[in-house]
Structures are given as C-alpha cells and as structure tokens.
Nucleic acid binder design. Structure first.
Length: 474
RNA sequence: GGCGACAUGGCCAAGUGGUAAGGCAGAGGACUGCAAAUCCUUUAUCCCCGGUUCGAAUCCGGGUGUCGCCUCCA
C-alpha cells in the first residue's frame, strides 16, 4: 500500500516518492500578517497541518517551512491606516496568528521565516535570474521576463496567450508584457525600503517564497502547498523564478486546498462576509471546527454555515462521548479477561486498516473519519455488554483513538481522573439526587437534575451508575 | 472568450467498472421512573440524454446546472 497524492502540476494522483526518503521537505504559503486570519485561511492551515502529521505518522521525517509575508502592498496600506509602522503591524498580527493557530491546534512549522529577514537571499535570487536573462530592470523596478521562461503556465495549465487574454496591466506599471511580474519594487515615498543593486526598494510578493523555500529546504523540494487561489499567479510565478534560477524542478508535488465558502459565497471583504477565526471561536469549539474541516476532502470546495457546524458538532460529540466513556471504564476494568471482546478486537484492527487506506488515498479525511465512527459503534456495543471490561481491550481501543487523534486533533482525550474533577457542591447535589432516586422521589431527583443542567452539568443514569458531563457551549 | 472543478438519500459527505461508506436530522423499537447516552430497524440506483461493456455513480460523447481561476485574495 502506498501513499498517493493529487498533484496540481500533473492533474492526477501520483505515488508519493520524496527526493530523499525518509526526509520530506514541505513548504506552505503562510499568512500576510496585515489582519486576523479568517476561517478560510484556517482551513488551509488545518488541512496541511494534518497532512504534515500524517506524513510523519507514515514514517517520513517532514521538515516544514511556513512563511510570514510581512512586507507587501496590503501591509503598507494597512499600517498607514492604523498609523503604525509596517514592522509594528507585522509584530501585532504575527502574534495574533500564533494565538489563533494554537487555539486551532495547528502546530507551528519547523521554520517560520519572515520575508523582511531574508532580503539578502531574495536579492541573490533576483541576481541569478538577471544573469540568466530572465529578469530586466525597468525604472527602479525589476521584472521577471515570462516570455523568456518556456514553461510558464505549466501549473495553471494555461498557455501564456490564454493567460494574457484576461490579464490587465495596471496603469503606471513598467513591465513589458502583461504576464511579467515584479521581483523588486523601487522605493516610493513613505514606504519601507532596503538597499539593493537596483537602488532602494522592496521585494515583490512571489520572490520571497522562492527564496525562503530554497534557503531552508534546498533548490528542489518535495511538497509545496497553499490555497487553491494561489495556483495562479503566485505558484506559477514561484515555479518560473525558482526553476528559472536553478534550472531544476522546484517542487515535485503541488497541493492546493479548496475554498471555504460562507453560505455558498466566496468570502470577500466587499461582500462583508469574512469571518475571522476569532469570531468563530467566540461561539464554537475549535475541535468542532477541525472536525468540520476534516469531514470533507481537502481539495473540495466546502461550504460553511452555522447550521453545518452544528451538524459537525453533533458528530464530533459522538466520538468524544465514546472516548470519555472508554476512559471512565478503565479503572474498573480487569486484566484477567477478554470475554466478549472478539468483535471489538477485530474492529480495532479493521478501523486502523481502513483509516490508513483512506488517508493513503490523497488524504481522504472523510473516509478516515468513517473508520472512527465504525469502531465507535463496536466499542459502544462492547461497553454496554453484559461482561466485565477488559483492561487490555479498552487500552487498545483508546490507543487507536489516541493514535488517530494525534493526527486529527478532534477529540479531548482525558485521563480517567481528569474526568472526575467536579467541585464539592456539585458532587453533593449529585449525591442528594442519587439518594432521592433511591427513595423513588422522582420530583426531587428531577429538580436537582434541572438545577445541575442550569449550571452546565448533564446527568446520565446508566446501569453502572450516574455519569455527568459538561454541556457544550452555545 | 480561455482553462478547470463539481453535480450521490431531508442535510453534510466517501466511493473511478461488479449491484451505493460514514455522520447529522427524522420515524419506529429496545433500555430508562422520566430523560440522556447507547444499540437495533428504517429512507438513494447516484442531474438529464446517448454510447462503450456481460456489467457503470464510476469510462466516452452531448446537454443542463453550480462554482472557481484567468486581477490582490487562503
């Protein structure tokens, strides 16, 4: 069984063969730090976070780089609006990004370079392009000469002629052809600038990713990833710059995450329907959001709505419920029996197999989730069974959820004693209700249950005694 | 205009040649003092029309619809 990945470059699923296994080099285009990230950004970061973890799970050693774009037109404009410097703006939103990513359980990349800290390598790359006749100076700017790069359009599968048909030249631009793009922008009054062989100025957007990817991962990398809207022109231009400079293939596999739409519309500032991660997390659990994201294939467009997220929450809670119940059953379980556990033992093995099979098929997280649910049913049957619980089987089952949760991060896996934390007053209320139930004083029992519910505690009476859980938010 | 993606039950969503995973919601049942949780049962021939094939949701052609990219954008 081999891992297969859909490659935007070739338009097909290909067997994954990194350059130097087990090492894998992976570059993900990071945020432009001019504002809080929105849920569409979050989808990209979550998806590639999971993919990265899965590659590690499959035995690869992934080195992942994700940049911060901390200098570009948007940064300059926003800093001016806020009345602060561009570096101050960058600091603010890099910090915000880190907070948001952490809350979403997106693990930090191994290297998180900033464009402004790599002006040297950027200039070096532009000079290489100049030497190869792929760049030209025009005014104070330097442009990439797309006409001189034969493979231009290979990623977006468009010929230059086709691309030109829709291209526009902004007034005042000094490029020769519409598809040419700026590698270096000459200084304008009031803008941040660095010294360069072409005078003071700043890097273009595309060149920073090429320069930083090469700097940390080498001239040819295994995986380059980002949102679908980066295919053109950003990634197309990265290929042109990188391959143009080195004469080598830049990235072997290009991965692109689909859009996250809101109410079937693309998020955009003009429509006013942009939802930031911060806004989302005011109302929803990050784990519910991760579950929601992973319930669809990463390349498919995915529609976001409050209702769909509630649906996802219900599904996730089913798994959470099971995980909690497995933990709770652990203390009373026995090491000397596996009675009634044959089906469960087989189901664990089957679930693991199915999980890997799905993930190996271009990271089919939806299929992988189905494996978690199928095992959940068997585990519930086992837990409800009329036999003692086997410590070994419970642990194996929990181990599987632990193993898969280390990839998906959709469950809160707690130790049994963590489940018992409840303050004294609430414990006594539960005890009083138990007493009332023994007396068959249902009125009192129900009243206490209502009171607890009002305080966010849900009670469940099981054959093995009363159980409590916290009511989910919203 | 060019390029491309998608169209599966009430909702979400897997499935690329052998008679449709999974989740949510609904209905019925079991369990329960009631409830919750859980389990069982239950709802699809896969947008339409042709074609290839013993056999297609799955391949090919045509059509319809939705969306994306071609311009900053995850």
């Amino acid at each position: 069984m081999a891992l297969r990945i859909y490659n935007t470059l070739t338009h097909r699923k290909e067997e994954f063969e990194p350059l130097n296994p087990p090492a894998v080099t992976m570059y993900v285009c990071g945020p432009t730090v001019y504002d809080y990230i929105h849920i569409g950004n979050a989808r990209v970061f979550i998806v590639f976070d999971v993919i990265r973890r899965y590659l590690n799970y499959r035995g690869y050693r992934v080195k992942m780089v994700q940049n911060y774009t901390d200098i570009d037109d948007k940064m300059i404009r926003r800093a001016a609006e806020e009345g602060i410097s561009v570096p101050e703006l960058a600091e603010r939103f890099i910090a915000a990004y880190k907070e948001d990513a952490a809350r979403l359980r997106v693990r930090p990349a191994d290297v998180q370079p900033r464009a402004t800290e790599h002006i040297g390598p950027i200039i070096g790359l532009i000079r290489r392009l100049e030497k190869r006749g792929l760049a030209y100076v025009s005014g104070g700017d330097v442009y990439f000469d797309t006409g001189a790069f034969p493979g231009y359009g290979q990623l977006s599968h468009q010929s230059p002629e086709e691309l030109v048909a829709g291209a526009r030249v902004e007034p005042g631009e000094r490029k020769r052809k519409p598809l040419d793009f700026a590698l270096w922008k000459g200084r304008k009054p009031g803008e941040p600038a660095w010294d360069s062989p072409w005078g003071e100025g700043r890097p273009g957007w595309h060149i920073e990713c090429s320069a930083m990817a090469m700097r940390y991962l080498g001239e040819s990398i295994d995986i380059h990833a980002g949102g679908a809207d980066l295919i053109f022109p950003h990634h197309e231009n990265e290929i042109a710059q990188s391959s143009g400079a080195t004469g080598k293939p830049f990235a072997r596999y290009w991965l692109h995450a689909g859009y996250l739409n809101i109410d079937r519309q693309k998020m955009s500032k003009s429509l006013g329907n942009v939802l930031t991660v911060r806004q989302l997390l005011e109302e929803f659990n990050p784990l519910d959001f991760r579950f929601f994201i992973l319930s669809a294939h990463y390349r498919s467009p995915l529609n976001f709505s409050r209702d769909l997220l509630l649906q996802a929450r219900s599904g996730r809670e089913r798994l959470q419920e099971l995980a909690d119940n497995l933990s709770r059953a652990l203390p009373a379980s026995r090491r000397d029996t596996e009675e009634g556990g044959d089906q469960l033992r087989q189901s664990i093995a089957a679930a693991r197999e199915r999980f890997i099979e799905a993930m190996d098929d271009d990271f089919n997280t939806a299929g992988a989730l189905a494996a978690l649910f199928e095992l959940a049913r068997e585990a519930n049957i086992y837990l409800n069974g009329d036999h003692p619980h086997s410590r070994k089987l419970l642990e194996e089952c929990l181990a599987f959820y632990g193993e898969t949760n280390a990839l998906f991060d959709i469950l809160e896996l707690r130790e049994p004693d963590e489940l018992e934390e409840l303050d004294e007053e609430l414990r006594q209320m539960i005890a009083r209700r138990e007493e009332a139930r023994r007396r068959k004083d249902w009125a009192t029992a129900d009243r206490i249950r209502e009171e607890l519910l009002a305080r966010g505690i849900i009670l469940e009476d099981t054959p093995h005694g009363v159980r409590w859980k916290r009511k989910p938010l919203s």
